[in-house]
Design a binder for these strands. Sequence first.
DNA 1: TATTGTTATACTCTATAACTATA
DNA 2: TATAGTTATAGAGTATAACAATA
Lengths: 144, 144
Amino acid sequence: MTTSAHPHDSERLLDALVQTSFEVIGVVSRVAADNELSLTQLRVLAILRDREPSMSELAEHLGVDRSSVSGLVDRATQRGLVTRVRDTVDRRSARVGLTPAGHELARAGAAAIHTGVAPLLGSLGPDDGARLTELLEALLGGRR
Amino acid sequence: MTTSAHPHDSERLLDALVQTSFEVIGVVSRVAADNELSLTQLRVLAILRDREPSMSELAEHLGVDRSSVSGLVDRATQRGLVTRVRDTVDRRSARVGLTPAGHELARAGAAAIHTGVAPLLGSLGPDDGARLTELLEALLGGRR
DNA sequence: TATTGTTATACTCTATAACTATA
DNA sequence: TATAGTTATAGAGTATAACAATA
Protein backbone atom coordinates (compact mmCIF):
# COMPACT_ATOMS: atom_id res chain seq x y z
CA MET A 1 0.00 0.00 0.00
CA THR A 2 3.00 2.29 0.12
CA THR A 3 4.02 1.55 -3.44
CA SER A 4 1.32 3.47 -5.32
CA ALA A 5 0.86 7.23 -5.32
CA HIS A 6 -2.46 8.85 -4.48
CA PRO A 7 -4.14 10.95 -7.17
CA HIS A 8 -3.42 13.93 -4.99
CA ASP A 9 0.31 13.27 -5.18
CA SER A 10 0.43 13.34 -8.95
CA GLU A 11 -1.60 16.54 -8.84
CA ARG A 12 1.05 18.13 -6.67
CA LEU A 13 3.82 16.90 -8.93
CA LEU A 14 2.18 18.21 -12.08
CA ASP A 15 1.56 21.60 -10.52
CA ALA A 16 5.11 21.86 -9.23
CA LEU A 17 6.49 20.88 -12.63
CA VAL A 18 4.39 23.41 -14.53
CA GLN A 19 5.08 26.18 -12.05
CA THR A 20 8.82 25.49 -12.07
CA SER A 21 8.82 25.49 -15.86
CA PHE A 22 7.18 28.92 -16.04
CA GLU A 23 9.73 30.18 -13.55
CA VAL A 24 12.65 28.87 -15.61
CA ILE A 25 11.29 30.09 -18.94
CA GLY A 26 10.73 33.45 -17.28
CA VAL A 27 14.42 33.61 -16.49
CA VAL A 28 15.36 32.63 -20.03
CA SER A 29 13.03 35.29 -21.45
CA ARG A 30 14.59 37.92 -19.24
CA VAL A 31 18.06 36.90 -20.39
CA ALA A 32 16.91 37.18 -24.00
CA ALA A 33 15.44 40.63 -23.41
CA ASP A 34 18.62 41.76 -21.66
CA ASN A 35 20.47 40.88 -24.84
CA GLU A 36 17.90 42.55 -27.10
CA LEU A 37 16.70 39.18 -28.33
CA SER A 38 13.29 37.57 -28.37
CA LEU A 39 12.96 34.17 -26.73
CA THR A 40 12.70 32.66 -30.20
CA GLN A 41 15.84 34.37 -31.46
CA LEU A 42 17.75 33.12 -28.41
CA ARG A 43 16.47 29.63 -29.15
CA VAL A 44 17.67 29.98 -32.75
CA LEU A 45 21.16 30.86 -31.57
CA ALA A 46 21.14 27.96 -29.10
CA ILE A 47 20.05 25.49 -31.78
CA LEU A 48 22.71 26.69 -34.20
CA ARG A 49 25.46 26.19 -31.63
CA ASP A 50 25.80 22.55 -32.60
CA ARG A 51 24.06 22.32 -35.97
CA GLU A 52 23.90 23.93 -39.40
CA PRO A 53 20.35 22.98 -40.33
CA SER A 54 18.32 23.74 -43.42
CA MET A 55 15.45 26.20 -43.05
CA SER A 56 13.02 23.30 -42.79
CA GLU A 57 15.10 21.52 -40.17
CA LEU A 58 15.35 24.72 -38.16
CA ALA A 59 11.56 25.08 -38.36
CA GLU A 60 11.27 21.53 -37.07
CA HIS A 61 13.59 22.23 -34.14
CA LEU A 62 11.65 25.37 -33.23
CA GLY A 63 8.26 23.80 -33.78
CA VAL A 64 7.09 26.59 -36.09
CA ASP A 65 6.15 26.86 -39.76
CA ARG A 66 8.87 27.26 -42.40
CA SER A 67 7.42 30.59 -43.42
CA SER A 68 8.02 31.92 -39.92
CA VAL A 69 11.65 30.88 -40.08
CA SER A 70 12.24 33.01 -43.18
CA GLY A 71 11.52 36.14 -41.15
CA LEU A 72 13.44 34.94 -38.11
CA VAL A 73 16.53 34.24 -40.19
CA ASP A 74 16.09 37.50 -42.14
CA ARG A 75 16.17 39.55 -38.96
CA ALA A 76 19.03 37.57 -37.42
CA THR A 77 20.99 37.97 -40.65
CA GLN A 78 20.39 41.72 -40.71
CA ARG A 79 21.83 41.85 -37.21
CA GLY A 80 24.89 39.93 -38.33
CA LEU A 81 24.20 36.92 -36.13
CA VAL A 82 23.59 34.17 -38.68
CA THR A 83 24.40 33.31 -42.29
CA ARG A 84 22.19 31.67 -44.88
CA VAL A 85 24.13 29.79 -47.53
CA ARG A 86 22.53 28.21 -50.56
CA ASP A 87 23.26 24.49 -50.87
CA THR A 88 25.34 23.82 -53.98
CA VAL A 89 24.01 20.28 -54.47
CA ASP A 90 20.29 20.80 -53.95
CA ARG A 91 19.94 24.41 -54.98
CA ARG A 92 16.47 24.71 -53.46
CA SER A 93 17.94 24.22 -50.01
CA ALA A 94 19.88 26.54 -47.71
CA ARG A 95 21.97 25.97 -44.63
CA VAL A 96 21.84 28.32 -41.67
CA GLY A 97 24.84 28.90 -39.44
CA LEU A 98 26.21 31.29 -36.84
CA THR A 99 28.56 34.16 -37.58
CA PRO A 100 31.35 34.77 -35.05
CA ALA A 101 29.15 37.45 -33.48
CA GLY A 102 26.29 34.99 -33.33
CA HIS A 103 28.49 32.39 -31.72
CA GLU A 104 29.65 34.86 -29.11
CA LEU A 105 26.10 35.97 -28.32
CA ALA A 106 24.97 32.34 -28.10
CA ARG A 107 27.78 31.62 -25.67
CA ALA A 108 27.02 34.70 -23.57
CA GLY A 109 23.33 33.85 -23.58
CA ALA A 110 23.95 30.31 -22.35
CA ALA A 111 26.19 31.64 -19.59
CA ALA A 112 23.58 34.23 -18.56
CA ILE A 113 20.88 31.56 -18.46
CA HIS A 114 23.00 29.49 -16.13
CA THR A 115 23.69 32.50 -13.95
CA GLY A 116 20.01 33.38 -13.91
CA VAL A 117 18.70 29.89 -13.18
CA ALA A 118 21.32 28.97 -10.57
CA PRO A 119 19.66 31.02 -7.77
CA LEU A 120 16.58 28.81 -8.10
CA LEU A 121 18.75 25.91 -7.05
CA GLY A 122 20.15 27.72 -4.06
CA SER A 123 17.92 26.00 -1.52
CA LEU A 124 18.98 22.53 -2.64
CA GLY A 125 21.88 20.67 -1.07
CA PRO A 126 24.48 18.89 -3.24
CA ASP A 127 22.79 15.52 -2.80
CA ASP A 128 19.44 17.02 -3.71
CA GLY A 129 20.99 18.45 -6.85
CA ALA A 130 22.37 15.09 -7.90
CA ARG A 131 19.02 13.41 -7.27
CA LEU A 132 17.12 16.11 -9.17
CA THR A 133 19.50 15.75 -12.12
CA GLU A 134 18.86 12.02 -12.24
CA LEU A 135 15.11 12.48 -12.09
CA LEU A 136 14.96 15.17 -14.76
CA GLU A 137 17.25 13.23 -17.07
CA ALA A 138 15.06 10.15 -16.59
CA LEU A 139 12.03 12.29 -17.40
CA LEU A 140 13.67 13.70 -20.54
CA GLY A 141 14.90 10.27 -21.59
CA GLY A 142 11.43 8.78 -21.37
CA ARG A 143 9.52 11.42 -23.26
CA ARG A 144 7.50 10.94 -26.43
CA MET B 1 34.87 14.55 -0.79
CA THR B 2 31.47 13.14 -1.60
CA THR B 3 29.59 16.10 -0.17
CA SER B 4 30.36 18.73 -2.80
CA ALA B 5 29.19 18.68 -6.40
CA HIS B 6 31.57 19.13 -9.31
CA PRO B 7 31.00 22.12 -11.62
CA HIS B 8 30.12 19.62 -14.28
CA ASP B 9 27.23 18.32 -12.16
CA SER B 10 25.57 21.71 -11.82
CA GLU B 11 25.99 22.15 -15.57
CA ARG B 12 24.05 18.95 -16.12
CA LEU B 13 21.36 19.99 -13.67
CA LEU B 14 20.89 23.41 -15.25
CA ASP B 15 20.67 21.92 -18.72
CA ALA B 16 18.16 19.28 -17.63
CA LEU B 17 16.07 21.90 -15.87
CA VAL B 18 15.98 24.25 -18.85
CA GLN B 19 15.30 21.46 -21.32
CA THR B 20 12.51 20.03 -19.17
CA SER B 21 10.97 23.47 -18.84
CA PHE B 22 10.86 23.98 -22.60
CA GLU B 23 9.27 20.57 -22.94
CA VAL B 24 6.57 21.38 -20.38
CA ILE B 25 5.84 24.84 -21.75
CA GLY B 26 5.62 23.24 -25.17
CA VAL B 27 2.85 21.01 -23.89
CA VAL B 28 1.04 23.95 -22.31
CA SER B 29 1.31 25.94 -25.56
CA ARG B 30 -0.15 23.05 -27.50
CA VAL B 31 -3.05 22.82 -25.06
CA ALA B 32 -3.65 26.54 -25.48
CA ALA B 33 -3.61 26.25 -29.27
CA ASP B 34 -5.99 23.30 -29.15
CA ASN B 35 -8.42 25.58 -27.35
CA GLU B 36 -7.85 28.48 -29.75
CA LEU B 37 -5.99 30.40 -27.07
CA SER B 38 -2.52 31.91 -26.98
CA LEU B 39 -0.24 30.88 -24.13
CA THR B 40 -0.77 34.30 -22.59
CA GLN B 41 -4.56 34.09 -22.79
CA LEU B 42 -4.45 30.68 -21.12
CA ARG B 43 -2.28 32.18 -18.39
CA VAL B 44 -4.83 34.98 -17.95
CA LEU B 45 -7.61 32.45 -17.43
CA ALA B 46 -5.46 30.47 -14.97
CA ILE B 47 -4.62 33.60 -12.98
CA LEU B 48 -8.26 34.67 -12.80
CA ARG B 49 -9.32 31.29 -11.43
CA ASP B 50 -8.54 32.39 -7.91
CA ARG B 51 -8.29 36.19 -8.16
CA GLU B 52 -10.17 39.24 -9.43
CA PRO B 53 -7.21 41.55 -9.93
CA SER B 54 -7.04 45.10 -11.20
CA MET B 55 -5.50 45.65 -14.64
CA SER B 56 -2.21 46.61 -12.99
CA GLU B 57 -2.21 43.58 -10.74
CA LEU B 58 -2.91 41.33 -13.70
CA ALA B 59 -0.01 42.94 -15.54
CA GLU B 60 2.17 42.22 -12.52
CA HIS B 61 1.12 38.56 -12.46
CA LEU B 62 1.83 38.18 -16.16
CA GLY B 63 5.06 40.13 -16.08
CA VAL B 64 4.00 42.46 -18.89
CA ASP B 65 3.24 46.16 -19.22
CA ARG B 66 -0.19 47.51 -18.28
CA SER B 67 -0.71 48.72 -21.82
CA SER B 68 -0.38 45.15 -23.08
CA VAL B 69 -3.06 43.98 -20.66
CA SER B 70 -5.61 46.38 -22.13
CA GLY B 71 -5.47 44.52 -25.43
CA LEU B 72 -5.40 41.08 -23.80
CA VAL B 73 -8.49 41.86 -21.74
CA ASP B 74 -10.20 43.51 -24.73
CA ARG B 75 -9.84 40.36 -26.80
CA ALA B 76 -10.82 38.02 -23.96
CA THR B 77 -13.88 40.18 -23.29
CA GLN B 78 -14.90 40.12 -26.94
CA ARG B 79 -14.77 36.33 -26.73
CA GLY B 80 -16.98 36.34 -23.67
CA LEU B 81 -14.33 34.88 -21.37
CA VAL B 82 -13.72 37.72 -18.92
CA THR B 83 -15.46 40.79 -17.54
CA ARG B 84 -13.98 44.17 -16.73
CA VAL B 85 -15.89 46.06 -14.03
CA ARG B 86 -15.10 49.60 -13.03
CA ASP B 87 -14.32 49.94 -9.31
CA THR B 88 -16.99 52.08 -7.61
CA VAL B 89 -14.66 53.33 -4.89
CA ASP B 90 -11.56 54.24 -6.90
CA ARG B 91 -13.11 55.02 -10.26
CA ARG B 92 -9.76 54.95 -12.03
CA SER B 93 -9.45 51.24 -11.29
CA ALA B 94 -11.11 48.17 -12.79
CA ARG B 95 -11.41 44.57 -11.66
CA VAL B 96 -11.10 41.70 -14.09
CA GLY B 97 -12.95 38.43 -13.57
CA LEU B 98 -14.02 35.28 -15.38
CA THR B 99 -17.40 34.76 -16.98
CA PRO B 100 -18.98 31.29 -16.58
CA ALA B 101 -17.62 30.44 -20.04
CA GLY B 102 -14.19 31.67 -18.96
CA HIS B 103 -14.32 29.57 -15.83
CA GLU B 104 -15.24 26.48 -17.79
CA LEU B 105 -12.45 27.05 -20.31
CA ALA B 106 -9.96 27.63 -17.49
CA ARG B 107 -11.03 24.37 -15.85
CA ALA B 108 -10.82 22.45 -19.13
CA GLY B 109 -7.42 23.99 -19.85
CA ALA B 110 -6.02 22.95 -16.49
CA ALA B 111 -7.31 19.42 -17.00
CA ALA B 112 -5.80 19.25 -20.50
CA ILE B 113 -2.46 20.48 -19.19
CA HIS B 114 -2.41 17.68 -16.65
CA THR B 115 -3.36 15.14 -19.29
CA GLY B 116 -0.67 16.48 -21.60
CA VAL B 117 2.13 16.66 -19.04
CA ALA B 118 1.41 13.34 -17.36
CA PRO B 119 3.06 11.25 -20.14
CA LEU B 120 6.35 13.01 -19.39
CA LEU B 121 6.22 11.40 -15.96
CA GLY B 122 5.55 7.94 -17.35
CA SER B 123 9.10 6.68 -16.90
CA LEU B 124 9.22 7.60 -13.21
CA GLY B 125 8.25 5.15 -10.49
CA PRO B 126 5.98 6.21 -7.60
CA ASP B 127 8.91 6.82 -5.28
CA ASP B 128 10.66 8.87 -7.94
CA GLY B 129 7.55 10.97 -8.31
CA ALA B 130 7.36 11.65 -4.59
CA ARG B 131 11.03 12.60 -4.50
CA LEU B 132 10.71 14.88 -7.53
CA THR B 133 7.71 16.60 -5.97
CA GLU B 134 9.71 17.31 -2.82
CA LEU B 135 12.65 18.67 -4.77
CA LEU B 136 10.57 20.91 -7.05
CA GLU B 137 8.56 22.25 -4.14
CA ALA B 138 11.79 22.99 -2.28
CA LEU B 139 13.06 24.76 -5.39
CA LEU B 140 9.89 26.83 -5.72
CA GLY B 141 9.86 27.61 -2.02
CA GLY B 142 13.38 28.96 -2.13
CA ARG B 143 13.05 31.25 -5.13
CA ARG B 144 13.45 35.02 -5.27
C1' DT C 1 1.12 65.87 -8.51
C1' DA C 2 0.64 60.87 -8.74
C1' DT C 3 -1.82 56.83 -10.27
C1' DT C 4 -4.92 53.89 -13.26
C1' DG C 5 -5.96 52.69 -17.43
C1' DT C 6 -6.21 53.53 -22.51
C1' DT C 7 -4.62 54.77 -27.08
C1' DA C 8 -1.27 55.39 -30.88
C1' DT C 9 2.56 53.49 -32.88
C1' DA C 10 6.00 50.28 -34.19
C1' DC C 11 7.99 45.94 -34.01
C1' DT C 12 8.34 40.70 -33.57
C1' DC C 13 6.26 36.30 -34.03
C1' DT C 14 3.02 33.32 -36.07
C1' DA C 15 0.05 30.77 -39.49
C1' DT C 16 -2.26 30.26 -44.07
C1' DA C 17 -2.19 30.59 -48.83
C1' DA C 18 -0.06 31.51 -53.03
C1' DC C 19 4.08 31.78 -55.35
C1' DT C 20 9.11 30.67 -57.46
C1' DA C 21 12.80 27.74 -58.30
C1' DT C 22 14.54 23.37 -58.27
C1' DA C 23 14.22 18.40 -58.17
C1' DT D 1 4.51 16.26 -59.57
C1' DA D 2 6.80 17.11 -55.25
C1' DT D 3 9.85 19.75 -52.29
C1' DA D 4 12.51 23.97 -50.32
C1' DG D 5 12.01 28.32 -49.47
C1' DT D 6 9.86 32.99 -49.92
C1' DT D 7 6.30 36.47 -49.98
C1' DA D 8 1.80 38.55 -48.96
C1' DT D 9 -1.40 39.05 -45.61
C1' DA D 10 -3.63 39.14 -41.25
C1' DG D 11 -3.72 38.85 -36.42
C1' DA D 12 -1.77 38.43 -31.64
C1' DG D 13 1.48 40.03 -28.21
C1' DT D 14 4.72 43.36 -26.66
C1' DA D 15 6.90 47.93 -25.21
C1' DT D 16 7.26 53.04 -25.29
C1' DA D 17 5.27 57.38 -25.15
C1' DA D 18 1.51 60.39 -24.73
C1' DC D 19 -2.92 60.99 -22.99
C1' DA D 20 -7.55 61.26 -20.03
C1' DA D 21 -9.80 60.59 -15.81
C1' DT D 22 -9.49 60.28 -11.12
C1' DA D 23 -7.21 60.58 -6.74
